[in-house]
Write a protein that binds this DNA or RNA. Structure first.
Lengths: 315, 315
DNA sequence: ATGAAAGCGCTAACAG
DNA sequence: CTGTTAGCGCTTTCAT
């Protein structure tokens, strides 16, 4: 009756009568028993590094809006502020999931990961290997960025990211940037600022520490692998009395809605994070329904120029 | 064996041997069957209005960090950008949840809602009735805010929120503000700006529309029920050529990490949203375990003064 | 068409 | 202590 296979068997009146009675008695099908009997799982898992990072929220939004309504979304976060690892995912898998979405994995993790249910990887910087994935095409936006920075006279550009083990995607952004810069006769001029975490504060501290060295090396532009890092650098630069974009031009990745509100407004590469979520939902739903491993998907990105970037000021 | 009741029954060596063999064969307990046999539900549901609002993310973070590890977290979002309603929650309940957390409900919804499993309401502005809830104590922070604004010479204060049906909490913030202001001999001077949604853009459009009226009425300070709205007002004011805090002082609620980055940095009432999540997790876990309805919890808030507020400038 | 029965994979209770 | 069994609430199949 509640299995959706009754058209033609039960008259509509009777049907609604039954539903009314069911509601009256407070009956609801026990989905656990139902799932067991049918041998079908009902929830898909999402594991990401940090719910507090807007990138995550945007992906999640895309996901919830486009996930097949037959599934519910189980969200798993790593314990204690760390990045997620195999044990986080094991915890997820213990829930017997119909499918799994892994957002922004670390290298180490991805190498040792063996899928045990339909899985799609999100934002792995092209490192997902044979696993179905949704990734970003950064090359054209980053090439444009490189050309733009070059035209402004920046030939000493620095990058801030996190270690490769932590986030493949940030490292991938670095590589694309390096390639783009090289295409314009320059390249990353100094050692990266390699942060421990993805927070504004991490970048704030980190930049204050590294700026003397970068300044001495003549760095005039900083590209951050994540908008949050750029916000931290912005605050740090301000606290150091630096003029942005006069003394230092700044670029982030993601294009969060807050980036036009900072002072100065932040130039970014827009990653359209919400679309990553919707595409992942589409891919995974198909994967689960058909059982066939889908191909990977690559989504575009776009340069957004605002006030945090400007011509080099020689002193 | 996998039920956790083996200490003293199986030797540690044998135990690990079995686990090794299980891993070898790729065996994992079927949690659906397990749950059915034990008659225990394994997931708790979280329904909130909008994953994209950082308030939601912060609550979610608190939740995931402190939820009993026996439970997994199922996240439910309303369809199509609307606020969530009974049908959203019905969808949630179809999943047979051990417990339910409802964040920032609307009036209409809350009035017609009848819990069918252990439920705690979050951020309902004191309107949760008999249901266990986690709420904010705004009065002392808002009284402080009122005194502060009064001392700056602001006696024409305006409020921006959403309709009461949509978010009880924003209306509650308004009431607290009104009470605080009244305590200082003033009060809200003009009609509220009542927005449709919770986005920066909603507030941007709304403020541009209403400012002529507010300006004519001599409004010198605007308090927004949500930081996102304050960001929108900030952008709108800037686009209108207003000087903040010279022409207009601005205050938000939540104290997002972005609020110290805006230009000018935003004064806010810090809601400590993450703690709402951790408290809700604690309350609900206890509720489910003991079966006894827990009492409600009230959490403190705090005024944070930054650059967006200053003395009234008479012209 | 309607009803009875088997069984999904596990757990808990109960014999041996 | 070990092995067997009933049964969780539902779906599906197979007789009636």
């Amino acid at each position: 009756m509640f299995t959706g296979k009754d058209p033609g068997r039960v008259s509509p009146q009777l049907r609604s009568l039954i539903f009314a009675a069911a509601a009256d008695l407070g009956y609801r099908v026990n989905s656990t028993a139902s799932a067991l009997a049918r041998g079908q799982l009902e929830s898909i898992g999402f594991v990401g590094p940090d719910p507090t990072n807007p990138f995550f929220s945007m992906v999640l939004e895309g996901l919830t809006r486009h996930l097949d309504s037959a599934f519910s979304l189980t969200v798993l976060m790593p314990e204690g502020g760390e990045d997620y690892n195999l044990s986080t995912v094991q915890r997820a898998l213990a829930g017997n999931l119909a499918g799994l979405i892994l957002a922004s994995p670390g290298t180490e993790f991805l190498e040792s990961f063996v899928p045990t249910c339909p899985t799609v990887i999100l934002d792995a910087g092209g490192a997902a290997g044979a696993l179905p994935s949704v990734d970003l095409d950064l090359s054209s936006a980053v090439r444009e960025l490189s050309g733009y920075l070059a035209s402004l006279g920046h030939d000493r550009v620095a990058y801030v990211g996190v270690s490769r083990e932590k986030k493949i995607s940030l490292q991938y952004r670095r590589e694309e940037l390096q390639a783009g810069l090289l295409g314009h006769g320059s390249g990353l001029a100094v050692d990266d600022l390699v942060l421990e975490g993805m927070t504004i504060d991490d970048a704030f501290e980190g930049f204050r520490r590294i700026w003397p060295a970068w300044s001495a090396a003549g760095v005039t532009a900083v590209v951050c692998g994540d908008d949050l890092h750029a916000y931290g650098v912005l605050r740090a630069a301000r606290s150091l009395g630096l003029d942005i974009p006069g003394d230092l031009s700044l670029v982030g990745f993601n294009d969060l809605p807050y980036s036009e509100l900072t002072a100065p407004a932040l130039s970014t590469v827009n990653l359209f994070a919400t679309r990553l979520g919707t595409e992942a939902a589409a891919l995974l739903s198909r994967y689960i329904r058909t059982g066939r491993v889908p191909g990977s998907k690559v989504l575009p990105s776009a340069l957004v120029v605002r006030e945090s970037t400007g011509p080099v000021r020689r002193r």
